[in-house]
C-alpha cells in the first residue's frame, strides 16, 4: 500500500470520527437550553449546538433520496444484462418499468397502474406467506428434533389454540396469555437487549473509524 493510500485511509477515518463525534454530541446536547441555564444567551447557544446534527440529518435525507436513482440504475443494469441472456422475467420487468414510466408521464402523474397491479400482487403474496409460515411451523421438528424445537412447537400450538373463540378452551387461553405476558415477553426483551448491546459496540466501531470500509 502506497503512502498516499495510507494517508487517504487515515483521512477518511478521521473525517468519519470527527463527524460521528460532533453529530452524537450535537444530538445529545443540542436544543436543550436548560442545560446551559447558568450562561447568558443559553437559547442561542443551545440552537448552535443542535446545528451540526440538523445539517447531518438533512444531508442523510438528501443522500437517501439520491440513492433511489442508484437503486433504479442497478435494477436496470442487472436486468438488461439478463435480457441479453434471454431471461423472460427480466424482459417482463423492463417492459413493466417502461410502461409504468410512460403511463405516469402521459397521464399527468397518475399512479393508478402501480396501485392496480402492485397492491393485489402484494396482497396475494401476503396470503402465500401465511401458507409458507404454517408449512414452516409444521417442519420445525424435522429441522430441529431437540428440546428447543419441541418447546417452540408446543408454545406455537398453545398460543394458536388460545386465539380460538371456543368457550371450552378457556384454560388454554389462560395458558396462552401467561406465555405471551411472561416467558415470551422476557425472551423478546432479552433478544432486544442483546441486539441493543451489539448495536452500541458496532456503532462505536464505526464512530472510531475502525470499520472495514475506512480501511481502504
Amino acid at each position: 500500500m502506497s503512502r498516499t493510500q495510507r494517508l487517504g485511509i487515515a483521512f477518511s477515518a478521521f473525517i468519519a470520527f470527527a463527524v460521528g463525534v460532533i453529530t452524537t454530541l450535537s444530538l445529545l446536547l443540542g436544543d436543550r437550553p436548560e442545560l446551559y441555564a447558568e450562561f447568558a444567551g443559553a437559547p442561542a447557544f443551545a440552537r448552535l449546538m443542535s446545528l451540526p446534527a440538523a445539517i447531518m440529518v438533512r444531508l442523510v435525507a438528501i443522500t437517501s433520496a439520491v440513492t433511489i436513482v442508484i437503486g433504479i440504475s442497478n435494477l436496470l443494469y442487472v436486468h438488461l444484462g439478463r435480457v441479453v441472456r434471454g431471461a423472460f422475467f427480466s424482459i417482463v420487468m423492463i417492459a413493466s418499468f417502461a410502461l409504468t414510466i410512460w403511463w405516469y408521464w402521459s397521464k399527468g402523474g397518475d399512479t393508478s397502474l402501480l396501485a392496480a397491479v402492485q397492491v393485489p400482487i402484494e396482497s396475494a403474496l401476503a396470503a402465500l406467506l401465511f401458507l409458507s409460515m404454517v408449512q414452516g411451523g409444521a417442519r420445525v421438528l424435522n429441522k430441529r428434533a431437540d428440546i428447543w424445537g419441541l418447546l417452540f412447537v408446543t408454545v406455537l400450538v398453545v398460543v394458536l389454540l388460545g386465539t380460538v373463540p371456543i368457550e371450552s378452551l378457556g384454560p388454554v387461553r389462560a395458558w396462552s396469555d401467561w406465555l405471551m405476558e411472561i416467558p415470551v415477553s422476557a425472551g423478546a426483551r432479552a433478544i432486544l437487549l442483546g441486539i441493543a448491546l451489539g448495536t452500541v459496540v458496532t456503532g462505536v466501531r464505526v464512530l472510531l473509524g475502525q470499520d472495514r470500509s475506512y480501511r481502504g
Binding site: G136, R139, K143, R144, F152, A190, I191, G194, L197, G198
Partner: peptide, 23 residues
C-alpha cells in the same frame, strides 16, 4: 434483528443465529 424474522428463521432456516450473535 427483527423478532418476527428471528422466529421465522428459527423455524424454517437450516442454520440460525439469534440476537446479539448477529453482531
Amino acid at each position: 434483528d427483527q423478532l418476527e424474522g428471528g422466529a421465522i428463521a428459527f423455524a424454517m432456516a437450516d442454520e440460525v443465529l439469534i440476537g446479539e450473535q448477529l453482531f
